[in-house]
Design a protein around this nucleic acid. Structure first.
Lengths: 200, 200
DNA sequence: TAGATTGTTAATCGATTAACAATC
DNA sequence: TAGATTGTTAATCGATTAACAATC
């Protein structure tokens, strides 16, 4: 679904008004059947003999993805990756606002990035009391990930964007976790390289 | 497979010598059947009545993933994300060495990170002539991604680790691409949040 | 109306799970 | 040998693709 959203956004930028499953199929390199199946699962967004209206479909998928509401994010771990996320302003266009960074390094206290303050992890609870937090991004070392994660769960957080190299073990199974394991991704790349050089 | 490798590495750190598909199944939250199926696809690494030797299995999977050989990486785009990747030293333990950063911003020329030089994109060809490059990580804006990617392909690069928000369209279909689309991942998270609050 | 293209059912494929025989 | 646990085949499930009738 995010992939459809991305492609439809690109089409909008190009000024395309309507598209058929066949045309989209070619662009996205998935079968037209797949596209019709997927889109129809979420409702009849197309029109026989016409295709799909790009703007309408874009808006509908945005709604399905929950992008009409703003999401506040805090980042735990203000190292390189945490700072990179905070500096990356493109997320805001999608409604994802980074409102705070937390770290245990006192040397970072008082610093801020694009107006986003870096705070001490000890102040997490106080901050959570005064701000609505929807998502926490974890970019700290793996040994503290589980304990911080469960601290966040206690504060009622609903979702965790996990960059730490562990699969989190959470007390509350209702909390949604999305993993971004960069080193897994690199290893996969290495594996695929090997495969592609072997077959042929 | 990378996930198995990660878990086996953790087990090694804990000093575990052998493990059965059942025990691993519980840890990894996949069925024991799945594990045996997966591992057996790559060779008979286990022993009936005993289970799997952790060290042996770890080494074998590392070999399958191609981790016994070193991979040289260059990063195109020395912005926040590119610098974060370069500063992240953990990849080296897996044999992935970042040997250069490239950007178009002349202000960055002469800078370096952990001894990794930042160079101008114009010097890419010269650098490629003198260094073995296995993987290129793309962290630059999407509008230049396709052209840079194909320039890399011309230089004989075998793999691209793509952080740009496009699906690359490469001339050479033998080049392996691994995408890391952070905003897709965030949207997926948003969608999952919505789902988990709706069902129950 | 004729043509285009979706929505939707049916067929195919692959991946996951279950079961159990082989064997350490 | 008896017990444990893999390797492997068979059964199940879900996701992808093909086909075509519905309809704009």
């Amino acid at each position: 679904m995010p992939r459809y959203y991305r492609y439809l956004g690109d089409l909008l930028d190009e000024g395309v008004e309507r598209i058929s499953s066949n045309e989209l199929s070619e662009k996205m390199k998935v079968t037209a059947s797949q596209i019709r199946q997927d889109l129809n699962n979420f409702g009849g967004f197309g029109q026989q003999g016409y295709g799909y209206n790009v703007q309408y479909l874009y808006d509908e998928i945005g709604r399905i993805l929950g992008l009409q509401q703003q999401h506040n994010i805090i980042v735990i771990g203000a190292g390189n990756l945490g700072q990179a996320l905070a500096n990356y302003s493109k997320f805001e266009k999608l409604g994802f606002m980074i409102i705070g960074l937390f770290d245990v390094n006192p040397g970072l206290l008082g610093h801020s990035l694009r107006g986003i303050p870096i705070m001490m992890l000890d102040d997490l609870e106080a901050f959570a009391g005064e701000n609505q937090i929807d998502i926490a991004a974890l970019t700290m070392p793996k040994h503290s990930a589980d304990s911080v994660a469960n601290r966040l769960v206690k504060l009622g957080i609903r979702a965790i964007w996990n960059f730490a190299h562990v699969d989190l073990d959470l007390m509350d199974k209702n909390v949604v976790v999305e993993n971004v394991h960069l080193s897994d991704s690199l290893m996969q790349l290495s594996y695929n390289m090997l495969q592609s050089s072997q077959d042929l």
